[in-house]
Design a protein around this nucleic acid. Structure first.
Length: 290
DNA sequence: CCAGGGAATTGTGGACCGTG
DNA sequence: CACGGTCCACAATTCCCTGG
């Protein structure tokens, strides 16, 4: 997973088979999942450790064995809880896996889900039989994909149908169907703006104006959703980008600092150390060695 | 109850200096 | 040239409040 990209534009799977699975592990001090979103749907199964996730405005914790569902377009991020390493498996799939509006399965079940006319739980714990069944299906799905089992595409598609069927059974009609929170959409605009122009000077007032909020209110709302302040967020995007340049190029540290939007080497070094626990040149040395 | 504003408080980041 | 330390204006963030 490319952690520097917030709106994931890469295609998950191939157009003819829009599914991809991946396994991700990290240590207790490492970032688990930076804030991002994608149009695809996603199931995530935590196999080791404990983690806290935020999906749009909701916070919850997952322990090993529990899973979560992320709907199309939902902003999500996660961090490690405790001092155990964390491993999760994820399957990301396009809604078009289930056909299009001409098909009953899509029209009746998938479309309302993606449109939020029908809401389902995000966290899938192990409390009920139905939830345990979903988790078992996910395990089967990941086993098939990780072992490269024969006919795994067919198996995966079938299992995803079953997972969604059981998930939908846990949900219900959305009473406030048309009242989806427009603030989240405006926040995404801000995030895209930062992604596109993080090398420029970015002032809080510009971001607040983009979101159509006062600076003070924007700060509060931004932190509520992303768990970071706007400035922390901008810096994290810049540092991620700088880390990539350090790994991939041999440009001077100062040049990279300038390129990703830091006008002051001092400040760049400080932010870098905060994120990676080492100086930029240490980081480059380690990357070259490892 | 919640969105939002103004004021008070906090802390970032730009400048400059010293060291290896 | 990389990097750390210090200082401080003022931008960012939080606090506290009002009106819907």
């Amino acid at each position: 997973m490319n952690k520097a990209t917030l709106k994931e534009n890469r295609v998950h799977g191939e157009p003819v088979y829009p599914v991809s699975t991946y396994r991700f592990s990290c240590g207790p001090e490492e970032p688990l999942m930076d804030l991002h979103w994608h149009d695809e749907l996603e199931f995530l199964l935590l196999v080791e450790g404990a983690a806290a996730f935020r999906v749009d405005t909701a916070d919850f914790e997952l322990r090993a064995g529990e899973a979560m569902f992320v709907n199309s377009g939902e902003l999500h991020s996660g961090r490690v809880l405790g001092d155990e390493p964390v491993t999760f498996l994820a399957v990301v799939f396009g809604a078009d896996l289930f056909g299009d509006v001409r098909e009953k399965v899509y029209d009746r079940y998938i479309f309302p889900l993606v449109q939020r006319n029908y809401v389902v739980p995000t966290k899938i714990s192990l409390e009920t039989t139905a939830e345990r069944a979903i988790v078992a299906l996910l395990r089967e799905l990941f086993d098939a994909n990780e072992s490269g089992a024969p006919m795994r595409e067919l198996t995966t598609k079938g299992l995803l149908h079953l997972c969604l069927s059981k998930l939908l059974a846990l949900g219900g009609e959305n009473r406030r169907a048309e009242t989806t929170d427009g603030r989240i959409e405006r926040l995404k605009t801000v995030i895209e703006y930062v992604e596109a122009r993080c090398e420029e000077t970015i002032a809080l007032r510009d971001l607040a104006a983009l979101a159509g909020m006062s600076e003070a209110y924007f700060c509060r709302f931004f932190k509520k959703i992303t768990a970071k302040t706007p400035v922390e967020y901008v810096n994290s995007v810049r540092i991620q980008r700088a880390a990539e340049l350090l790994r991939r190029t041999d440009r001077k540290i100062m040049a990279i600092a300038l390129e990703v939007g830091f006008s002051n080497l001092n400040h760049f070094n400080g932010e870098f150390k905060r994120r990676f626990g080492c100086t930029p040149s240490d980081y480059r040395r380690r990357a070259a060695a490892g």
